[in-house]
């Protein structure tokens, strides 16, 4: 081993201890029963109606927050990518800044904003409007997830759009294409890599989310992440928890496969 390669040593130790070993343990637990024998039942447990409905809820909420993030981010990223002035970086900064604050703190802050006697209702009350009961509902979870993962959508989109050659847009216009045609034939296809990595980077973390569901959902809505968390912490059935985690991992690997195929330019490298 050359000296330069040895510099990777600490990372290798880290990866072995905190990535490979845990993964291996999840595999081991996932495929064994509580008395140690080999079994598929922990994986098959996903077919349990409770787990299926929890998985369904997770997918719906994760998809919802992905779609909202996309709808919000796409126009913004487009506008930002067209500007060349120094203000762009300020705006981008504004979206990255919250990511530097601890995720738990942001969720707890949202809880205070949305609470019955919270800041939002305080403002509404000031204008004589009816208070909203958003906290502890699916809506609150959706808001929380969207808020948390929005930057993961904006950045890859912005990156992809910055790479679009302006001359292509100008050429399309010269050749008589209208705004809609330009958008649908030039900008949209060329921004697709960004769209896909954005979708994946929001969807994947959202689908296994459980802390947001607990705090903003008032523990009333059971997501697949909650099921897994409870199997580990409450029921102490690590085997079942691992089995369900493996099922969830399938989604992640599937998305990574899609990502590898389309994201040749690695729009997401800014974040990961």
């Amino acid at each position: 081993m050359t000296k330069r390669k040895m510099l990777a040593g600490p990372y290798l130790v880290w990866a072995a201890g905190f990535i490979i070993l845990p993964l291996f343990m999840i595999l081991l637990y996932g495929f064994t029963s509580e008395d140690g024998g080999f079994t598929f039942s922990n994986i098959a447990a996903i077919a349990d109606p409770i787990h299926l409905s929890a998985l369904g809820q997770s997918i719906v909420i994760a998809a919802g927050s992905t779609v909202i993030s996309l709808l919000v981010s796409y126009p913004l990223a487009y506008i930002l990518s067209k500007r060349t002035s120094g203000k762009t970086s300020t705006v981008i900064m504004m979206f990255i800044l919250p990511m530097w604050i601890n995720f738990m703190l942001r969720v707890l802050a949202l809880q205070m904003i949305l609470a019955n006697t919270g800041i939002l209702n305080g403002i509404l009350g000031f204008f004589g409007l009816e208070p909203l009961h958003i906290l502890y509902s699916r809506k609150a979870i959706l808001i929380g997830m969207t808020y948390d993962y929005l930057p993961f959508m904006i950045l890859p989109l912005y990156n992809a759009m910055c790479k679009i050659d302006r001359d292509l847009v100008d050429a399309a216009a010269d050749l008589g294409a209208g705004r809609f045609i330009i958008f649908s034939k030039v900008i949209l296809p060329l921004s697709m890599p960004g769209v896909i990595s954005g979708i994946i980077m929001v969807f994947i973390p959202s689908i296994s989310e459980f802390a947001i569901a607990d705090i903003l959902g008032g523990s009333k809505i059971l997501l697949i992440g909650n099921v897994i968390e409870q199997e580990f912490n409450l029921t102490n059935n690590w085997n079942l928890g691992s089995g369900l985690s493996l099922v969830l991992m399938l989604f992640i690997f599937g998305s990574m496969a899609v990502m590898n195929k389309t994201d040749a330019d690695q729009e997401g490298q800014l974040l990961w």
Partner: peptide
């Protein structure tokens, strides 16, 4: 009862009561 419940909480219920949320 579940549809009447605002939230299931452990220690946080104290804060919710103090704040007048519940």
């Amino acid at each position: 009862q579940k549809r009447l419940v605002m939230a299931y909480m452990v220690d946080e219920s104290r804060d919710a009561m103090i704040a007048g949320d519940a």
